[in-house]
Simulated scan of single mutants.
Amino acid sequence: MKQIMRSLSAFLSTLSATGLFATAALADNSQFQGADPHAMVIGRELWIFPTGGPGGAWEADRFGAFSSANLKEWRSRGTLIQRDEIGWIGEDGAREHFLWAPAVATRAGKWYLYYSVGPQNPTPSRIGVAIADRPEGPYRDSGRPLVGKAEKDPKPFEAIDPMVFSDPRSGRIYLYAGGSAGARLRIWELAPDMVSIRREVTIQQPRRFTEGAFMHERNGTYYLSYSHGRWNADDYSVHYSTASSPTGPWHYRGEILGSDARHQGPGHHSFVQSPSGDWMIAYHRWDRQAGPAPFKGERQVAIDRVRYERDGRIARIAMTDGAASPIWPGP
């Protein structure tokens, strides 16, 4: 057994050196260590942009990206951008800063990386944006924060968890952000340059919203999904609301992903449609722990199938492992 483990360790080391690594545990559905995965189809591969660096671990000073053609082997795409490449990051006077919750969009041949910059306390969190010619970068920061707390804003707002959605019907581009302690969602329409704001849209607050908003459209229905609960506790879960437009008003539909007997705290997700037309959800989760919250250790990125009912509702999502886990690009 020791010889087998040494051989496996050497094999994984070789994969890492070549930019490839196997799914962490082939018996389950944990793709790799990480959090807040933004999933996109690029070519015929699934790309994931998570919180963390190019090694798949929590690194608060940089972002990495990963791609796979089969959900079994993942290729690290290297570092997208590092904290010391963001010139305005120290303007708030905070002693240290963290990067998390990236989102990626593309327009007119360019790629745009949106990201959260903390801490929230004692200084306000902010959202930045960087531009690249390729999805793997390198990304160049735009030179200023895209969103920060307005000095005269009477309501508390955490500028975190950005998500950009291009409306296929109107062609307008929307930025969704906010949440956590303030549990407040805000939406802006972006200018065509993708790095400046045209206007803020007044919205109704979605029911049970905490953070991590994601928007997708299917058959004319707009699905606003989001995380509810504490990020490091058993009540963290995914809920959703629907609307006839990307800015509401929202019709709350309920919880679609929550803790089960093996895994806890699933959330901060993204929806993606495979080249075969199947819908999937990428999210992070914790392996079930013996002790109470707050959970410790590292979160794992997982991917599961999404099924829609005949009336357009999203069926409750089952967290899978082993042979029950989805394949890419699907049947």
Rank of each mutant, 00 (worst) to 15 (best):
Y240A: 05
L46W: 04
E59N: 15
F295M: 08
D321R: 14
R207L: 13
S7N: 11
G312T: 09
M40R: 13
R230G: 05
P168W: 05
T23M: 11
K2S: 06
D234I: 11
L8Q: 12
K110S: 13
W74I: 11
Y114W: 06
Q3A: 12
S67C: 14
A213T: 06
W100H: 05
V306G: 05
G178Y: 10
P119N: 12
T23F: 03
I48A: 07
T242A: 00
T14M: 00
I256T: 06
W328Q: 06
G118M: 03
M163K: 13
P124D: 05
M194Q: 02
F21G: 08
F214W: 14
R207C: 09
V238I: 15
S241V: 05
R285G: 00
T247A: 09
G55W: 04
Q31K: 07
G53M: 04
A10S: 14
T221I: 15
A60T: 13
R126V: 02
L20G: 12
Y176T: 01
V306D: 04
E59R: 14
S244T: 12
T210M: 02
I203M: 11
A290H: 07
W286T: 08
D133T: 05
T14R: 15
P192L: 04
F32P: 03
F295D: 00
S166H: 08
W111F: 15
A24M: 01
Y223I: 12
A101D: 00
Q300Y: 03
A132Y: 13
